[in-house]
Design a protein around this nucleic acid. Structure first.
Lengths: 144, 144
DNA sequence: TATAAATAAGATAAATTTATCCGAAATAAA
DNA sequence: TTTATTTCGGATAAATTTATCTTATTTATA
């Protein structure tokens, strides 16, 4: 569904958010341990999230990654996915046709549209806050 | 969503089915031209479909690929996807956790479950026949 | 039985994704 | 201002997916 990079990015953002609730900055090392991902690769993905204004980084001693508290509720999964994987998952054709729309549909166009629209809605309506709160309260988990 | 291999596999199966309605066998060359895919790679995917008993191949002169007429209606998209990509798309965790279920859910488990279940239903209920008939009647298209 | 036509199978190559490494730049604190 | 700490950025490597090529095997027909 999503690329590995995107999976790591989503989990990293959730972990950063859950720590930012308590004003704790976290390092790539800490992040990759908590989400069970390769550290250097995760650091690269974090840079992408920074460039896309989803998380904030503070360089130097006592630095790390954080998310502004008021941004945690307004940031949606869709933004993270878009920053890393683009919008192909919920915009592109299910069979890879470059030109696929109502007027020139691929064989599964209608059937896929339902699912992709639902996916897009879900990503657009799910906030980092919901996900981070579930982590903090122990309802859900970022690794096994 | 699906791998390239799977996209090609689905389109190839639809094209073969639409020809099998008229008892016409088709070659990898013809298939790759009609679905706009690399020929040798497509041939490899066809082998996988043969091994999984989704299409039938006839070697030698006047050979080619076909699907038994009575199989066209009973073959579902799910079988093709499973043969090439496995069931990760609608069975695996959205964030890649190996252990992710009701008891130990990832942060997006519930939200993804809805979509994956719907995807699984769709793939399980969509027959090659429906898709092939739309191609034959010009309602949908396999390439631009 | 010989020949031509076709798929099967294995080796290899190219492209993309995933992952690692290392030096540069920035920052807080001593 | 120096030092320790930390992210940034570029180069590189490994793994996977996508794609190609070449040879073997099968089969219908002359």
């Amino acid at each position: 569904m999503f690329s590995k990079a995107c999976e790591y990015g989503i989990k990293a953002a959730i972990f950063i958010a859950s720590n930012s609730f308590e004003n704790r900055r976290v390092s790539p090392k800490e992040i990759s341990e908590e989400i069970d991902s390769p550290q250097a690769f995760t650091a690269k993905i974090l840079q992408a999230l920074v460039k896309n204004n989803i998380v904030k980084s503070v360089r130097g001693a006592y630095g790390g990654f954080e998310i502004d508290k008021d941004k945690i509720a307004t940031t949606k999964l869709a933004q993270i996915v878009y920053a890393i994987d683009g919008d192909g998952i919920y915009k592109g054709c299910g069979l890879g046709l470059h030109t696929c729309d109502e007027n020139h549909p691929c064989p599964v166009h209608d059937k896929f549209k339902v699912i992709r629209d639902e996916l897009q809605d879900m990503l657009g309506n799910t906030s980092l806050e919901q996900l981070a709160l579930d982590i903090k309260s122990g309802v859900s988990f970022l690794k096994v």
